[in-house]
């Protein structure tokens, strides 16, 4: 198997302006050409942004779910208190 060197016609045309440009212009390059416009997301954003930010919706629904569960637990605690009160009251009443 032989690797064929690129013929001159296959060379990417984007190389040409670089060759034609004088070196003194490189210092005036803006960051626009050197960086991709999207900075790679970091930390939480790497978790939340993929797939069209669908995980933000998941987080929101989970927060609401936690709120509902909190309510459930508080109601439970209130029922417990009522049951304890009933247990206290029944021995007191001889009926």
């Amino acid at each position: 198997m032989t690797l064929h060197p690129l013929s001159s016609s296959d060379a990417a045309p984007s190389l040409r302006p670089q060759q034609a440009r004088p070196d003194t212009a490189a210092a005036y390059d803006s960051t626009w050409t050197e960086q991709s416009d999207a900075r790679p997301p970091e930390g939480l954003e790497r978790v939340m942004l993929p797939d069209g930010k669908i995980y933000v919706v998941l987080a929101v629904v989970l927060i609401i779910w936690i709120g509902v569960v909190t309510m459930l637990f508080r109601t439970d605690r209130r029922i417990d208190a009522l049951e304890r009160r009933l247990d206290q009251d029944i021995p007191e009443d001889p009926a």
Partner: peptide, 14 residues
């Protein structure tokens, strides 16, 4: 917004 527009269904009713 992308897919997070779906939060409309959950955030606004709060």
């Amino acid at each position: 917004l992308e897919q997070s527009a779906r939060n409309l269904y959950f955030h606004v009713p709060m």
